[in-house]
Amino acid sequence: MTFIILVLAVWASFAFVWIVKPKDKKNIKLLLAFSGAFLLALTFFELLPEVYENQEPKTIAIFILAGILLQIFLEFFSKGAEHGHVHLDMKKNKFPLLLFVSLSIHALIEGVPIHGDSSILYGILIHKVPVAVILSIFLINSELKKSSVILFIAAFSLMTPIGNYLAQSTWMEAYASIFTALAIGVFLHVSTIILFESSQGHSFNLRKLLVIILGIGIAYFA
């Protein structure tokens, strides 16, 4: 069921863009701000207490920091697609392999901390939808062949479920805390970047502030 939900979230976002062709990105940015706040709060409420339980604090901290550095490295190739920004030049009809690889690694890591029908699953879904919408807008408006766009979305939609499947395999059980710490680092970087970017120019925006507070509040009671 988790597998199906994660795949459908990406395809539903893509279908929405394909059919509706949204022009106004303000509401998408609000959803992105909500997702950043929700994911950040869940990381503090759920993942951090879990990963530090009965583990060496400094070891866990090293892998959290490694996750942050990994995400920074991935963004050299994805140009910020993980937090809703795609700044690639797609004038040539060429499959964006580096974008695909970096997003795939990010999506694989996202699947690691998901355990069944948990609040983390909903956090990942809420984060994935606005990112998939913005990515779909970029791909559809690019000069890529439609077949390449479909291939990109199809493969991308499978990455988080595959990451979740691998995390639950027997050979990875001994390293569960390490990979979860790595995922925490990725989430911390992505969610904080989303929140920082939600206040461009450091101008006060009441709607975004309320959306962020709402995201934290819902995560607390999730």
Results as ranks from 00 to 15, higher is better:
residue 112 V to H: 06
residue 142 S to T: 09
residue 186 V to F: 10
residue 100 F to S: 01
residue 138 F to Y: 07
residue 111 G to W: 02
residue 8 L to H: 08
residue 119 S to Q: 05
residue 207 R to W: 09
residue 68 I to P: 08
residue 202 H to G: 07
residue 44 F to V: 01
residue 178 I to M: 11
residue 172 M to P: 04
residue 105 I to A: 11
residue 35 S to D: 04
residue 198 S to N: 07
residue 85 H to Y: 09
residue 152 F to M: 02
residue 199 S to W: 11
residue 210 L to F: 13
residue 133 V to H: 03
residue 77 F to V: 03
residue 122 Y to F: 14
residue 39 L to W: 01
residue 126 I to G: 05
residue 220 Y to L: 11
residue 195 L to N: 04
residue 149 V to W: 06
residue 170 T to Q: 14
residue 158 L to E: 06
residue 162 I to N: 08
residue 99 L to Q: 08
residue 164 N to S: 13
residue 121 L to M: 14
residue 11 W to H: 11
residue 222 A to V: 04
residue 78 S to P: 03
residue 49 P to G: 10
residue 11 W to S: 05
residue 214 L to H: 03
residue 102 S to H: 02
residue 76 F to P: 00
residue 35 S to K: 01
residue 40 L to K: 01
residue 122 Y to M: 11
residue 209 L to C: 04
residue 117 D to V: 11
residue 6 L to I: 12
residue 25 K to C: 07
residue 145 K to L: 12
residue 39 L to M: 12
residue 214 L to G: 04
residue 26 K to N: 14
residue 123 G to A: 06
residue 53 E to G: 10
residue 35 S to V: 02
residue 213 I to V: 13
residue 207 R to E: 12
residue 136 S to W: 01
residue 2 T to M: 05
residue 19 I to T: 12
residue 117 D to L: 13
residue 35 S to G: 00
residue 111 G to V: 10
residue 111 G to T: 12
residue 155 A to T: 09
residue 193 I to L: 12
residue 75 E to R: 03
residue 15 A to W: 08
residue 127 H to T: 04
residue 83 H to W: 10
residue 113 P to S: 13
residue 17 V to K: 00
residue 78 S to W: 09
residue 116 G to A: 08
residue 216 I to L: 01
residue 126 I to D: 03
residue 174 A to Y: 13
residue 179 F to C: 03
residue 145 K to P: 02
residue 175 Y to R: 11
residue 172 M to H: 04
residue 92 K to A: 15
residue 65 L to S: 08
residue 183 A to P: 05
residue 219 A to I: 01
residue 200 Q to G: 10
residue 152 F to N: 01
residue 114 I to E: 11
residue 35 S to F: 02
residue 196 F to C: 06
residue 82 E to N: 12
residue 138 F to H: 04
residue 27 N to Y: 15
residue 180 T to P: 01
residue 65 L to F: 15
residue 14 F to I: 02
residue 53 E to Y: 15
residue 170 T to H: 14
residue 12 A to F: 13
residue 78 S to F: 08
residue 181 A to S: 14
residue 186 V to I: 09
residue 78 S to L: 06
residue 137 I to C: 08
residue 45 F to R: 06
residue 184 I to C: 14
residue 145 K to S: 15
residue 169 S to K: 10
residue 44 F to C: 01
residue 116 G to K: 06
residue 169 S to P: 00
residue 143 E to N: 15
residue 51 V to Q: 08
residue 45 F to G: 02
residue 191 S to L: 04
residue 132 A to W: 03
residue 172 M to F: 14
residue 218 I to N: 00
residue 3 F to M: 08
residue 146 K to M: 13
residue 3 F to I: 15
residue 92 K to L: 14
residue 197 E to C: 06
residue 162 I to M: 07
residue 183 A to Q: 09
residue 85 H to E: 13
residue 212 I to C: 05
residue 143 E to L: 13
residue 126 I to T: 10
residue 9 A to Q: 02
residue 220 Y to D: 06
residue 9 A to S: 11
residue 82 E to T: 13
residue 59 T to E: 15
residue 130 P to V: 01
residue 109 I to C: 02
residue 155 A to G: 04
